[in-house]
Every structure is written in C-alpha cells, then in structure tokens.
C-alpha cells in the first residue's frame, strides 16, 4: 500500500507539470471551507433570492459547534452533522435520516479562486474570496477573520446579476446548542451503484452519489464544488404532495413545472419514459443548462410506444 520515493530523470517533469494549479485552487477553497466548518457561532441569517417569479426570502437561526449545525427556520428545527439529519417537528417528534454515501468534495476545473479585499461585515473583519468562472464571479464569500464562519455569500447568474444572497443579521461567537435529539424514526438513505441510469456529468456538475430516492426512485446528487442539485428519476409520473403552487415554464418547446424557494428551485416533468424532479441551488442559467441535458418533457404516442416495445 505504501510506496517509497524513487528519484528519476528530469524528462518526467515536462509531462506531469500541468495538473498542479487546479489542485491548488481546490485546496485553497477547501481550506477556507474546512475552517468555516469548524467555526463556533450562532446568529440569525437572512436569505434572499431574485427569481423570475419575484423575490423569495427566509430568516434562519443558525448555531454551530463541534461540526454540528442547528438550523431553526421557525416552523421546526433541524440538526445537521456529517451524513445525519434530525428534523424536529413542532409537536416534538424527531425524524432522523442517515446517509452513508461517498461524496468527496471537489471543485470543478472551470472555477478559479481569487482572494479579494478585506471588508467589514456586522462590524467584523472578513476576508472576501471569489469563485470565478472565466471573467464571471459565480460566488462571493466573506469569511469572518476571527471564527472562520461564512458571514455573507452571494451567488450570481450567468449574466452577472445577483441570484441569492445569504447574510447574517446578527452574529455571536458563542454557540447555543441543546442536547443531541433522540429520534423516534430513522430513515436510512441507501447508496446505489446503479450505473447508466443517470448521467455521470450534467452541465459541468459531477454525480457524486447515487442512492434510492423516495418511492423507489433513483436519485443522483450532483455538485460542482459550490452549487449542488439532486435529480430524481422514476418510471412513472410523479405527483409532489404538499407542493403549494408551481408555475409552468417553457424553455424552447419544453415545458416544466417550477417552484422557486429561498435558495432552492424545484422542477418536475414527465417524459415518455417516466417522471423527473430536479431540486438545486444553482443560479438560473445553470438550472436551464442542467435541464437541457436531461430527458425532455413529452408524452410518447401510445401506438408508437407499443410498436417500439414489441418490435424494438
């Protein structure tokens, strides 16, 4: 397993040199995130997104310590730690979900990381880090110098307009943590090795995990290092229960049902072979780019389908 260094001639230097800058970018952003992950704080965060259907916003109270993040959005509390999620309902019931997948974080090679200025957020000194795609800033992060926490993040659409901003309205270096919740119900999300069902990459996002989704669907978790989404695929149409209102949106000839939330967008549609759902935090143009690479909405002609199934 362990290898030992063997020094060889200089010829190899020319061949292998190229891969290093990308890795350095990735390692740099990772070290910022690693520090943020270990930060201890509590505060109230405001998330606001500009969408074609209007503004979507939400207040969230956050508290983080020892790698455990407690999120309170008013209607209930969630406790999140690596691969575990506890949802505490108002009536006191606790649902735990566990996930033992394998999804090492990595940053897509289209991104570059650049350190920006020092700014003041909530009277605190913060270092700005920009994640760029060519000339375009895709994500701007402000890391608190004292704790390492992300005090502010702004994501941008492909045309340079702001998509979502999340920023702290109040921030304290003390975390307010209760005891870890005890779950009445635990739902395990089961990883799959189902190859070929969902594409390995979609618009520059890599499939990092594949697992059994709700109602037996195949679920793929995709990420490019800064944005992420899930695709659910089934062999039947999907009705989303409890979804208040969705609007129809068309890209070219293709029509989808869409709902914007603060920080997430959901699409659902039915293809000739089954139902699909997309839920993600990527900016508007990247939503469209991902949809363009998935099976398009449409209802197959039944007679055609019959012949195809019978005679290939």
């Amino acid at each position: 397993m362990r290898r030992f260094a063997i020094v060889t001639g200089f010829g190899l230097l020319m061949v292998i040199g190229g891969a290093v800058p990308g890795l350095a970018q990735e390692a740099e952003l990772d070290s910022w995130f690693e520090r943020a992950k270990g930060a201890e704080f509590s505060g109230r965060q405001f998330v606001v997104c500009e969408t074609p259907d209007g503004e979507r916003s939400e207040f969230v109270t956050l508290s983080q310590m020892d790698g455990v993040l407690v999120v309170d959005a008013g209607s209930g509390q969630s406790v999140i730690s690596r691969g575990e999620l506890y949802d505490l309902a108002a009536d006191g019931t606790v649902l735990a979900s566990t996930f033992d997948g394998h999804s090492p974080w990595s940053l897509d090679s289209r991104y570059e990381v650049s350190d920006g200025a020092t700014v003041t957020v909530l009277g605190r000194q913060a270092d700005v880090v920009n994640v760029l795609e060519g000339e375009l800033v895709r994500l701007e992060l402000a890391f608190d110098q004292t704790t390492g926490a992300v005090l502010r993040s702004v994501s941008f659409n492909g045309d340079g307009s702001v998509y979502c901003t999340s920023s702290f309205l109040s921030f304290s270096e003390d975390a307010v943590m209760g005891a870890m919740p005890v779950a009445q119900t635990t739902a395990a999300i089961v990883p799959l090795e189902a190859q070929g069902v969902l594409p390995d990459t979609l618009a520059g996002f890599g499939r990092r995990d594949t697992f059994v989704g709700p109602a037996g669907s195949v679920a793929g978790f995709y990420s490019d290092g800064i944005f992420s989404f899930t695709v659910l695929a089934t062999d039947r149409a999907i009705n989303i229960a409890g979804l208040a209102q969705s609007t129809a949106v068309s890209f070219g000839d293709d029509t989808y049902q869409r709902v914007f939330l603060a920080g997430r967008t959901l699409y659902s549609w039915t293809t000739r072979d089954g139902g699909f759902v997309l839920l993600g935090d990527q900016p508007l143009d990247l939503q469209e780019a991902v949809l363009a690479e998935l099976p398009e909405p449409g209802r197959a002609n039944l007679i055609k389908r019959f012949w195809r199934r019978l005679f290939g």
Binding site: A36, V60, L62, L69, V71, A73, R82, V150, S153, I189
Partner: peptide
C-alpha cells in the same frame, strides 16, 4: 443529506441544507 456529508458551513454550498422549513 448528501450535502450535509461535507459538514458544510452556512452560506454558499450550505444554502441548500440550511433550509429546514
């Protein structure tokens, strides 16, 4: 859940997981 594996910080990637509501 898959996003939480990274133990993400709030903001940025964690916008998606920091939604309990």
């Amino acid at each position: 859940l898959p996003a939480s594996q990274d133990g993400l910080p709030p903001g940025a990637r964690a916008v998606v997981i920091a939604r309990s509501s």
